[in-house]
Write a protein that binds this DNA or RNA. Sequence first.
RNA 1: GGGCCCGUAGCAUAGCCCGGUGGUGCGCCCGGCUGAUAACCGGGAGGUCAUGUGUUCGAAUCACAUCGGGCCCA
Length: 1067
Amino acid sequence: MKEVTSSYHANEIEESVRQFWLKDSIFEKTRELHIGDPDFFFVDGPPYTTGNIHLGTAWNKIIKDSILRYTRMTGRNVIARAGYDMHGLPIEVRVEQQLGFVSKKDIERFGIGRFIEQCRTFAADNMEVMSRQFEALGIWLDFADPYQTMKPEYIEAAWWTLSRADEEGMLERGHRVVNWCPRCATAIADSEVDYADVTDPSIYVKFPIIGRDHEYLVIWTTTPWTLPANVAVAVHPDILYARVEAVKDGKKEILWIAEDLVESVLRKGRYQDYRLLEKAVGSHLTGFTYSSPIEDTVTLQRDIAHRVVTADFVTLENTGMVHIAPGHGWDDYLLGCREQLPIICPVDATGRFTSEAGTLDGMFIKEADPVVLEDLGHHLLAVESVSHRYGHCWRCKTPIIFRATEQWFLKASDMRDRMLEEVGKVTWYPEWAGSARFYDWIKEARDWCISRQRYWGIPIPIWECRSCGKHRVFGTFSELEEASGRSLPDPHRPFVDEIPVPCQCGGEMRRVEDIFDVWFDSAVASWATLRFPGEKEAFERLWPADFITEGQDQTRGWFYSQLGASTIAFGCSPYRSVLMHGFALDAEGRKMSKSLGNVVTPDEVVTTQGVDVLRLYVLSSSAPWDDLKFNWEGVKTVNRAINIFWNVYRFPLPYMILDHYEPCTFSDGRWDDTAIQSRLGTMAAEDRWILSRINSCALLVSRAVEERQLHRATRTLIQFILEDLSRWYVQLVRPRIWLEGESDAKTAAYETIYYVLRRLCGLLSPFIPHITEMMFRNIRTQSDPPSVHMTDWWGGDENLVDGVLERFMDIVRSFDEASANARQAGKRKLRWPVPEAVVVTDNEEVIAAIGSLSSICEDRANARTVRVVRGAYDRIGWKAEPVMKALGPVFGKKAPVVRDLIRSHDAAALKSQLDNGEMVTLPGADGVYQIQPGFVTFIEELPPDLYQAPMSGGTVYVDVALTADLEAEGYSREVIRRIQEMRRQRDLNVEDYIMAAVVIDDDRVCSLLQGRWREAIREEIRAGIFMISPGSALSPQSSFELEKDWEIEGVPVVIGISKFTDQPGKK
RNA sequence: GGGCCCGUAGCAUAGCCCGGUGGUGCGCCCGGCUGAUAACCGGGAGGUCAUGUGUUCGAAUCACAUCGGGCCCA
C-alpha cells in the first residue's frame, strides 16, 4: 500500500495502467483465466474502416466493453474478436477522390488490380488507426486478431453462404427495378439510400387520347426525364373522374381529371372556365389508349401502345392519374408485370439516355428535364416546382434513379414468416426494439439485391457458361480450384475474374462480374469470425452469438442482414440477445455533423477529462437505448464524481500506512472478504451501515447490468460514492481514523473502509477500468490477482443488508440536515456546541432511530444532548390567529369581538382543546361564542435562542443559547482550526509536533481558555509547548517560524507556531 | 405519407409500465467546514411536466390529436 498524494490526474493514471496491461499481458491473462468457463460468444458489429472514430463509435465500444468485462468477471469464457467492415463503395469513393477519378472508366483505365490494391491499403491503414483509438479507450476486444471482411477466410464464409442460398433455392437472378446510383454506375440496396429534401419540377402533362380530338388524360410527375419510358396511365378503379370542357384564352379542350381535383388542376393551368361533360369511375376508363406527347423526338415512344390501367396505389392527389414507367419505378414495374406492359429503360448505367431516346441520346437525365419540358410543347398543362424528399446515394450523395436491370437477389420476402418467428425468440433490450421496431421492419422485407457492379468487394462466386447459360455457385476456394484446375492467389477482383471453369456442355464458364453488396459481408460475421466453414469446431461449439449490441440504425442494417443471411444458411437467428443503443447527438439534440460544426470527438473528451470520465459519462448520462445528448457540463460533473471517488480512496491511506494496517487474509494470502462478517456484532453503527449499503448497491448493480441497464448500474454506484461514502460515512469515521495509537474502533474503521474500497473497485471496474485498476493494485494483498479485472464479480449478499439500519440512518441524515438548518437560522456555526437538540415526533421509527443512533446525532449536531419529545414540546408557545374569512360569515358584525376574544385567550390551551376535538366556547360581554377548528390558525412561537427545522417524520429544535462552558469550547475550536490552518501553511506532517503561543486581546475570553481547555487545544494541535496569554502582541523575545494575526468573533488574536524539534520522540 | 423512440427548472435527468403532495445533479445566490483542503458540506431561488382534448374523484403517468427532435421506412 502506497500513499498517493496527488489529486486525480486521469491521463497519468490511464497511461500507467495501459502500460501495465501491455507489459504484463493482463488482457491475455484475464482471458486465460476464464478459458475453462462456460462460453459467451460475442460478435462485434464491424465499424467501417474510414477515418477516425467518433463519439457514437466510442460509445458503442464502451457499452460492449463494459458488458464484456462484467461478463468475464461472472465466470464466462468471453469470445470477442474485434471486427472491421473493409469493403465497399465508400472506400472506393475515397480512393477515387485520392486518385482524382470521376467515373468507372478512370478505374478501368488505371487497372482494376492496382485500384483494388489502393483500396486494400486504405482499409488496412484505417483499421490500424481505429484499433489504436479503441484500445486507448480501454476496450478489451481482440484487436490483435480482428476479423476483417477483406481476408480470404472471411470471403470464403460469404461464398459458402451464397452457395447455401443457391441450394435452398433462395438465390435468384431477376430483371428488376433497383435503386441505381448514376455516378457509381451500380445498383445500390434500399439500405444504402439516404433521403434528403430537393427541389424538382412539378409538372402537369396532357396525354392525347387516341381517336378523340383535343381530348386528354392529365397526369402529374416530378421526374420529366421518366416520360420517355412511359407506357401507361394508372387510375384508381373506384375514384370518380370527370370529363370537362376547359376554356383557356378562347380555346376549348377536353380533359380527364379526378373529379375532386378538377378545380385545382385547372387553376394551375390558368384555365378561365370549364364545364362538366360527364363522370366515370376509373374502372370505366381502361378502354382508352393514348399517344405520347413527345413521340416526335423520342423515337422509342412511337412503337408503344399506351393505355389506361387501374391500380390500387393511385390516390386522390394531384390529378388522380399516375404516369407509369415500369423501367423507372418499383410500383410501376410490378404493375407492368401484372398488366404485361412493355418494360423499357432508355437510360444507361451512368444515367445517360441511350439512342432509343432519339434526340435525348447521350444526355444526362437531370439535364434532360428542361429539354423534355420543351418537347412537351402545348401538352405541358402547368409547371411548378416542389420541394420533397428524394433518395440519394448514401456515399456520393448523387440523386438515385430507378432502373430496370438484371441483378442477383436473395428471396428475403419468401423468408418473412420464418424471420418473424426467429425475431420472437431473441431477447431484445429494450423489449420494443424487437417486438415493435424490428418486427415492423421485417414485415416489410423485400427481396435483397446483393449484386453490385463495382470492384472493391467480395466477388460473387457465380460462374456462368457462355455457351449454355448454366450457372454454378462455388462455396469454397478449393471447390473452385478443383473445378478450374487453377490456384486462386487472391479471391478479389481481378484475379478471380480470370479463372475459367469448364462447363458440362463443353463450353467455358466465367464469373459474373458483380461483387456483393457490402451489407452481405457483415451479414455473415457471426460465422465468418469463427472461421467457418474453413473450421467447424468453434462454430459448432459457440454459434449462435450470445449477445450483440449496435445503434438503432442497424435495425435495417446489421440486425437485419445477419438475420436474413443466417435464416437462409441455417434457418435460425444468429444471435440470442440484442441491445439496441441510441445515437450520439449534440447538446441541442441534433445529429453531430461536420456541416453543422457540432462534432465532439472522443479524443477531445479524453485529453481534457480522461478515458474513465468519458466512459462513465456515456454510460451514466442516458439509458443505452435513448439518444445521448452530449453535454460538457455533464462530462465535468462525472469528472468531479470520479475525483471524489479518488479523494475517498486516498484519504485513509496515510493513516493505514502509519499504523501498518494489513487486511485480513485467507491462509493462501488472498484478502479474506468474509472476515468482516464475524466482527459485525462489535462494530460501530456507521460501519455496519456502510457495509449494508455497499451490499444493497451491489445487488442493484448486478441486476441492472443483467438487464443491460448500464445507466442504472453506474448511477447507483456514483450515488453511493457521493452520498453514502463521501458525504456521510467518511465524515462520521474521520475522528476515529485520527485516534492515536492502537484501538479496536480504528481498526474496525480500516476494515470497513478497506472492504468498501475493494468492493467498489470490483463493481466499478467494468465501467471505469483504469482508475479502479490503479486503486486495486495499490490496496490488494500480495497473493490477490494482479489485476482487478481478474477478480470475480461480487454481486452483494442479501444477508449483509440491514434494511432497518439503512432506514434508521436515512432518518438520522434527515435529522442532520434539519439541525444544520436550524443552526443556520439561529446563526450558530457548527464549531460552536449547543446544549441540546430536540426531536419532536410521534413517529415510532424516528424515535427508535434517534435513540439507537444518538451518538451519531450528537456528533453531527455538535450538541451536548439529543433527545426525543413525544407530542407537545413544552418550550414551544403558540399564538392564535383568527381567520376572518371564516369568522365573518358566521358572526357578522360580531366578528371583531370574536377576533379579540380569540387573541386574548390562552393560545396553547385553545390549540390543545381544538386538537382534542373538544367543544370550545369563549365567553364575551354579550354572550358566548362557539369556536370551530377552521376559525383559528396557530402560529408557533419559539422562545429566544430556540430554532427549528422540519425533518422527515418530525421537527428538530436546536437551542443555541451560550454558557461559559459552551463558549470556551467554541473558542477552543476556533483557535484549533486556525493553528491547524497554520500547520498546513508550514507544510507540517500529521505526526509532527509544534510549539505555539496564542495572545488574545480580551481578558474574559482568554480566561475562558485556561485550564482544561488549554490542555485540550494543546493535544489537538500536537504542541510540545503551548501558551495562551492576554495581550495584543506576541512577546518580542519569542521568534516563531510563523506568526499570524486573526480575528475570532471580533476578538483580535495573534498566533505563533514553530516546529517542535527538541524532543522528537515525545508524545 | 408510415413505424418506433424521445420531449419534465437555464442545462442534464428520475418518476411513466402499475394514476394519489414532481425528486436529483450541474449552474446561480447565500451560508458552513477546514489534516480528503485548488477538496468537501448545508440552505435558497428556479417547474404551464411540449401543446390540446378526453378518461377519472384525481393525470407528468392512461387514451387520442397536434407541435418539436431522433432513428428507420415509402
